[in-house]
């Protein structure tokens, strides 16, 4: 049994410790806002917060997440400045990568409330978007920093 704390709720999951956290979140616990995109840590769709840090949940064995505070897109309130900025800037197109983009952006802004253009780009570089919403993402991060 693995004990997990996700979005403030404790869960017990009967799964072997090497299973990627992503699949436990999505399919064992049915928190499907976190997405699978590549399984090798190169697209960022599966980004969650582990003890406040943005991590690719496809690269984290669930056993390593025990005892840590995990936050997924469902654990971020609608009133969060980053979510509000994403709505204001109408960022999503297909929307599939956006949970990961938002989680990455929140981690960035909690570490640096007023990031430079370069810092925004460097931090968001690991999150792919096939629809091409990168320019809206930049606008939304800047807007969240301003309004946040």
């Amino acid at each position: 049994m693995i004990h997990l704390e996700i979005n403030g709720t404790r869960h017990m999951v009967d799964v072997s410790p090497e299973v990627p956290l992503l699949w436990v979140i999505r399919e064992h616990l049915k928190l499907t806002g976190t997405k699978y995109g590549c399984g090798i840590g190169l697209c960022g769709s599966c980004t969650v917060h582990i003890d406040g840090e943005a991590r690719r949940s496809c690269q984290v064995p669930v056993g390593d997440a025990e005892g840590k505070k995990i936050v997924t897109i469902e654990g971020i309130p609608e009133s969060h400045p980053v979510k509000k900025a994403w709505v204001r800037e109408q960022v999503p197109q297909c929307g599939y990568c956006q949970s990961g983009q938002i989680m990455q952006a929140i981690a960035l802004l909690s570490e640096d409330a007023n990031p430079s253009e370069k810092k925004i780009i460097d931090t968001m570089e690991g999150n792919l978007c096939r629809c091409g919403t990168y320019l809206s993402i930049k606008r939304a991060v800047r807007s969240a920093a301003k309004e946040g």
Binding site: R26, T32, G33, E78, K83, V87, Q90, V91, Q98, S99
Partner: peptide, 19 residues
């Protein structure tokens, strides 16, 4: 006009096939 699917997509509740 703002899109009708934005809120669901920003909050992780839009249901894709894989979900």
């Amino acid at each position: 006009l703002p899109r009708l699917d934005i809120d669901a997509k920003v909050n992780g509740v839009a249901r894709f096939g894989i979900d």
